Structures are given as structure tokens and as C-alpha cells.
Simulated assay, not measured.
Amino acid sequence: MKLAFIGIGNVGLALANNLQKKGHEIIVAHNDSKNETVQNALHNNHNFTTNKLQEALDLSDVVFLATPFSANEEILKSLKFNGKILIDCTNPIGKGLSHGLESKTSGAQKIQEWSKDAKVVKAYTIYGFENLMNTSFPKYNVKPLMMIAGNDSVSKKIVSKLNADLGFETLDTGHLDQALHLEHLTLLWVKMVRRDGHHPNFTWAMLAS
């Protein structure tokens, strides 16, 4: 598939690199091709191409949003998605590692509000970028879990296929309002690792009888 990335920092680059290795075409979406993070991504992987934001969206099958949450409204309101899947990889983190929207709604629901013609799926937010760079845990006979949420079942099936390419097992947690709880899982991970010094290379897994 052709995958456009809005945001190609640590999270976006980790996902894009691994998906490119699985045969997907990566388009870095940015209106300034000389941007430092864009240039770093192109230097890191010569198979990436770059296009302006709307052009990249028009060319792509699926769009990844991996920007700082505070930038999302301004970016998204100028774009037309025409029913394409928009994977929300962002998190609204506030002061003191709190939920940036005071847990009144999820960041993903705001993303859907700002991009009404997109099919938003929340994914790739419950871990840090380290776990997106390397999903292999060879000591265990179980795949790491990626929890997702979204309102459109077909879109979630496509994201589940991307999860499989990345080495994750998918757990569909339900509609997009469930993204609020996934964002709380993010805060749990961030506080454990970034604040309290827990080693980052751990993930959730699902065991079912």
C-alpha cells in the first residue's frame, strides 16, 4: 500500500521504516521538503519519497498522523481526506504528564472532529517509539499487542493487517470513544518509563483461553 506520513519524528520514522521493509511505499507528507525531520527521514531511508501534504494524501491509501498533538488542529483543518483512513498516532499530554484534554474526550475524537471526511483509527500510541522500532520478543511465544479503536470496521481490518506486518497482534477495543482509555494506557507507559526509569522494551500481550 501507499502510506503517507504526516509527522516523521521518532514514532513516524520507526513505523515508516518497518512498513517500508514489508513492501509498503512510504510518502513523507510535508509542505517544506527542506524541513529537518523530513531530511533526516530521507537520509535514514532512501526509499522514502516526499510530497506536499494534500498531494501526499491524494496519492496514498492510508495516512498516518504522528505529529505533536498541539499542531493537529491547524494541520488537519486544511486537508481533504475523501474517506481515507487516518491513523491517529498522537497523544494529548498535558502538564505533569496528565491527559491534555482533562479526560473529557479523547484526542482521537478531536482528530475526527478536525478531519470529518477521514475514517480515524487510534493506533500505535500505547508504547514509546522504542517498541515500534523493534517488536521482536524471541524469549516468549507470544506477539506484542497493539490495541486499536475506531468507528469503521473495514478501516480497522486494514490497520490490523498493518499491525501484522509490524509484528503485532491486534485487539480491537471498540468505537473511537475507547481511544480515551488507550491514551490513559499511554500515560501509564510514559510515567513508568520516562518519569520512573522503567526499561522501555516491554509491551502488553493478550493471553486468552
Rank of each mutant, 00 (worst) to 15 (best):
I6Y: 01
L65C: 07
V38N: 12
A164H: 14
L53G: 02
K110G: 01
M192E: 07
L65A: 06
I93F: 04
N134W: 09
I6D: 00
V159E: 00
H30L: 00
H184I: 14
Q178L: 08
A14Q: 06
K139F: 08
V63F: 00
N40Y: 12
F64R: 05
V120R: 01
L19Y: 04
S106M: 05
L15P: 03
G100M: 10
K119T: 11
P144C: 02
L65K: 03
A123K: 02
K104A: 11
N82Y: 10
F48H: 07
G9N: 12
I8H: 04
K119M: 12
V121K: 03
L171V: 07
Y124M: 15
S103N: 12
K119E: 13
L145Q: 02
P138L: 09
N17Q: 13
L166T: 08
N163M: 11
V38L: 11
L171C: 05
F129R: 09
H30M: 02
H99N: 08
I26S: 02
W204V: 11
F64T: 06
K2W: 10
L171P: 01
N72M: 13
P144H: 05
A66T: 14
Y140R: 03
H99D: 06
A71R: 13
S155I: 05
L176T: 10
L57A: 08
K122E: 06
G128I: 08
K95H: 09
P200W: 10
N151W: 04
V11F: 13
V11T: 15
D152N: 15
I111H: 04
L182I: 13
F129P: 13
V159K: 03
K191N: 14
L79A: 08
A66E: 05
K156N: 04
G94C: 08
M133P: 01
G197M: 10
H198D: 00
N47H: 15
V62E: 11
H184M: 14
W114C: 08
V142P: 00
M147D: 00
T203S: 13
H24W: 09
L79N: 06
E55V: 15
C89S: 14
G107I: 10
G100R: 12
W189I: 02
L19E: 04
I93E: 11
E113I: 03
H181Q: 15
L57P: 05
L187T: 01
L79Q: 15
